[in-house]
Amino acid sequence: MNQVYGMYKKLTAKNDKAGRAAFSAAFALKAPYFRTVAPMIQTMEPHRGVVKIKKWWGVQNHIGTVHAIAIANGMECAMGLLAEATTPDDMRWIPKGITLDYVAKTPGDIECVAETTPEDWDKEPPFQVDVKVTGRLVKDGTVAVEGIIPIYVSAKKKK
């Protein structure tokens, strides 16, 4: 099991807010720009990562909605959770890009969801996995942003 995924399972085993908050803070340190959206990790498991972003002044744009790039950061955070939980221990991953469509205004908190299927990972390395991502309003489920983050998966170099 991946070290990051193991930490998630350990810290969230009791399903308490303190463990989830501790893991969220630690994961945000892994890629410091995640801290800009103060992500709250909801789910980390193979083929699924879910992050909540609270609407606060630090993620707002000039019209008072959650900024599209803040949502993109949350979506990439969710993708990273999925990739860490899904990538086999002898493999590594890195994002290759991001394609997003901004489809609705975001006046409140956002939930970012990243998903793949087991079939997406059944290829010989190196290969690309297209992670499907959405950013939805927590209040009513309206999809605000949808897209794909392709990740490149390859064998780890032998030491």
Rank of each mutant, 00 (worst) to 15 (best):
M40H: 12
W56T: 07
F127E: 10
G49D: 00
E119K: 04
I94H: 14
G64N: 08
I110A: 13
A18P: 00
V138H: 05
A26V: 05
A13S: 09
I69K: 03
W93V: 03
V103M: 14
T87A: 13
I110N: 08
I148H: 01
V131S: 02
G141M: 13
M79N: 02
T36C: 06
E124K: 13
G135V: 07
N73T: 07
W57E: 14
E84M: 10
L29K: 13
D89S: 15
A22Q: 12
D109W: 13
G6E: 11
Y5T: 13
T12E: 04
K158R: 12
I63V: 14
P118R: 08
S154D: 15
V50D: 00
F23M: 08
W93P: 05
D130R: 07
K17Q: 15
V66Q: 14
V138N: 06
E146R: 15
S24E: 08
Q60H: 03
V66R: 05
E84T: 07
A28Q: 09
K55Q: 05
E76M: 02
A22P: 06
V4W: 10
L81T: 02
L11S: 03
K52F: 08
Y5I: 08
L81C: 09
P150N: 06
Q128M: 09
T142M: 06
V153Q: 12
K159H: 08
G80V: 02
V37H: 12
A114W: 02
V113I: 15
H62C: 04
K158L: 06
E124F: 09
V103N: 15
E119T: 02
K105T: 15
V50C: 01
T134E: 12
D89W: 07
G58Y: 03
K17Y: 09
